[in-house]
Computed example of a mutant assay.
Amino acid sequence: MTLHVDRLRSGGLIATYQCQSACPHCLYRGGPGRSPDYVSQEMAAACFAKALSLGCASMHVGGGEPLADPLGLAGVLAAAAETGMHLEYVETSASWYDDADEAVELLTELRAMGLSSLLVSLSPMHNGFVPLRKTLGVLEAARTAGVAVFPWQEHFLADVQAFDPEATHPFAAYLERFGPNYPAEILRRTWIHLGGRAFDLFAPVLGRKPVEAILAEASADCRRELADASHFHMDLYGDYVPGLCSGLACRVDDLGAPLDPERYPILTTLAESGISGFYEYAAALEEYQPLPGGYVNKCELCQDIRRHLTQRGWFESTELAPVEFYAAL
């Protein structure tokens, strides 16, 4: 039985993968080196319409940095109004903030277009690229403009306030101040999906296991995770990210019906036989060799297999997308 996503609950639209920050926990490996491509109003409307047709009545807008292109964001807000999609919030790292008056003016204009709420990232990981001054500046500007705000996650404020608010501080500075077990404390305090860059950030406290142990512990299939639509994402290219598995994709247009196994061999293999089947598939056809240092979990193994496939020029499907995701692996 192939993968079938026929119901969407709550999710977001990735407006761009470009971001001033390159946070060490970023699931989608956003950063300044990514393409500046931004979702068009037409694509946003198509994604919203598909989500609505599958039962999802509200979404958020994320990235990358959605406010890196205010005109592009205005198009997303227009697409939401056009389709009747309720936008819960727009995410921002506050990297774009420069001047208080300019920020208030921009957010006031966007509020008139439909921006009602802003999620402002606040964490030690973001502080490596965004000074606390900018974060607090965006929070204040939004309140002045009449845009609701919620810092994500506010419980990190005391940690970040231990440093100079005018400067950025790499994560190594937090390790030096709070100790080598600080990443483990972060995982106890907040939920972070282990994917993208997060494997390297948390591996020192979680440890890595040899491939044999990963395969022995893994379930027979990954169908439940891939079909989970409780917090889904669509992106600017018209791709749907199954189960928060960044770097894996199916076309938004193909949602609502069973995926064609010939068009989606990787997703089909994972859904039917799990990471063990995918590992055997890659080892037999593409001479994949596991890393001697092992993996945090089956998801890191899966990501590494997919990295290997892209380096081998594997173009049997469009599932390994966006290709830029794998460039830095």
Rank of each mutant, 00 (worst) to 15 (best):
A78G: 08
A79E: 08
A79S: 13
A79V: 11
A80R: 04
A80L: 10
A80N: 09
A80Q: 07
E82L: 14
E82C: 10
E82Y: 04
T83N: 11
T83S: 14
T83G: 11
T83C: 11
G84Q: 11
G84K: 09
M85F: 04
M85Q: 12
H86C: 11
H86K: 13
L87G: 05
L87N: 03
L87F: 07
E88K: 14
Y89D: 05
Y89N: 07
Y89I: 01
V90P: 02
V90E: 04
V90Y: 09
E91C: 08
E91P: 00
E91V: 12
T92D: 03
S93G: 08
S93P: 00
A94M: 07
A94F: 06
A94C: 08
A94E: 03
A94W: 04
S95C: 04
S95Q: 06
S95L: 00
W96A: 03
W96R: 02
W96P: 02
Y97K: 01
Y97T: 01
Y97H: 12
Y97M: 06
D98C: 08
D98I: 03
D99C: 12
D99P: 02
D99V: 07
A100P: 09
A100L: 09
A100F: 11
A100I: 01
A100H: 13
D101A: 14
D101H: 08
E102V: 07
E102Q: 14
E102A: 15
E102I: 04
E102L: 13
A103M: 06
A103P: 00
A103R: 00
V104P: 04
V104I: 15
V104T: 08
V104R: 04
V104N: 01
E105V: 14
E105I: 12
E105M: 13
E105R: 15
E105Q: 14
E105T: 13
L106P: 05
L106V: 10
L107T: 03
T108H: 08
E109F: 14
E109V: 14
E109C: 15
L110H: 01
L110Q: 02
R111C: 11
A112H: 08
M113F: 01
M113P: 00
M113W: 00
G114P: 10
L115V: 09
L115I: 10
L115F: 09
S116K: 12
S116Y: 02
S116G: 13
S116L: 09
S117E: 12
S117P: 00
L118D: 05
L118M: 13
L119R: 10
L119C: 12
V120D: 02
V120R: 04
V120E: 03
V120Q: 03
S121F: 00
S121R: 02
S121Y: 00
L122D: 03
L122S: 04
